[in-house]
């Protein structure tokens, strides 16, 4: 029974990683860049939700909507100001810029909100579900997290495959030049991608901060790195890959913590990543990219 508990909480953690990983993987798929500031959007979303709830006393659903809205705007502004001018630049310049943006966001947060850790309120739910005569306890938060992740995955897959803008995004991911020849505005498509990724980061922020209720300016770094790992693990650029990578990472991390060592858990997670990449360099569900001459 305890194994099941660990497994389920691993899946919940994995769900958060998966939702964050979507942001990395979609931006990579379409803009072909690694947005290392993505983790800090989570932090921004966390602070917005925190202040909306604790200081202004807004109802939870409004806090979440506000957090999504602000994160989306921040994500789009970052893309416009920092990344768009580098569309033709080498990927190394873009990568360095992304790291710079990440530091900028962390320091801006420190300046605005202070560096002290804040306690994130239980804005979603409390209590838990007891099963098998109380032998298995699953918190409602865990259930909400997993269900949210599933809804996002289903919704996003439908969006990408069925809507006009979704198909345009896939076209851009495959061949930007050809997409332009169809009359697709690549800049708009990239903005939409950043908007979606950042909005999802805000949802992840609320879920993450509700599970681990401490809020600080560097909150986003570790989950950001883990989710990036999850994206690479599953195959960067692939949406089902983000889900699979996130879930596996969450479960491995949790089970390692439970049965092997809390201190070694990150080391073991990254070892697994290295092994997977050695065997399958494109990640579990990644496609081999044809190099164009």
């Amino acid at each position: 029974m305890t194994f099941l508990t660990y497994l389920i909480s691993g899946l919940a953690l994995g769900s958060v990683y998966a939702i964050i990983a979507l942001g990395y993987t979609m931006v990579y798929g379409i803009a072909k860049m690694l947005n290392f500031a993505h983790g800090d959007i989570i932090m921004a979303g966390g602070y917005v939700a925190f202040y909306a709830f604790s200081k202004f006393g807004l109802p939870s659903y409004l806090c979440i909507i506000l957090s999504i809205a602000v994160s989306t705007i921040i994500g789009v502004i970052i893309e416009r100001l920092a990344y768009k001018p580098l569309r033709q630049a080498s990927s190394l310049s873009v990568l360095i810029t992304a790291i710079g943006v990440s530091y900028f966001l962390q320091n801006a947060a420190q300046l605005m909100f202070g560096s002290d850790t804040k306690i994130f309120p239980a804005m979603l739910t409390e209590g838990s579900l007891k099963m098998f005569n109380g032998q298995l306890t699953i918190s409602y938060l865990t259930i909400i997290t997993i269900v949210t992740c599933i809804i996002i995955m289903v919704g996003l897959t439908a969006f990408i495959n069925k809507t006009k803008i979704g198909k345009a995004m896939r076209a851009c991911a495959e061949d930007k030049g050809a997409a332009q020849l169809m009359g697709i505005n690549v800049d708009t498509t990239i903005s939409v991608t950043f908007a979606i990724g950042s909005g999802l980061a805000a949802i992840a922020a609320v879920l993450l901060c509700s599970t681990y209720p401490s809020l600080s300016p560097t909150l986003g770094s570790m989950p950001g790195i883990k989710a990036f790992t999850a994206a690479v693990f599953g195959g960067i650029g692939s949406i089902p890959g983000a889900l699979l990578g996130g879930m596996l990472l969450g479960v491995i991390e949790n089970l390692t913590k439970a049965y092997i060592s809390t201190q070694l858990s990150d080391a073991i997670v990254f070892t697994v990543l290295i092994i997977v990449l050695l065997i399958k360099p494109t990640g579990l569900l990644g496609k081999k990219e044809n190099v164009k001459v």
């Binding site: 076209a171 495959e174 020849l181 505005n185």
Partner: peptide, 24 residues
């Protein structure tokens, strides 16, 4: 004029190597 607007103005291109969207 940006490329996507040129399409709207009535110039379509069928590019070298076709460049169709293989996954759609």
């Amino acid at each position: 004029v940006p490329a996507h607007k040129i399409v709207e103005m009535g110039v379509a291109q069928c590019p070298e190597r076709r460049r169709i969207f293989a996954s759609q």
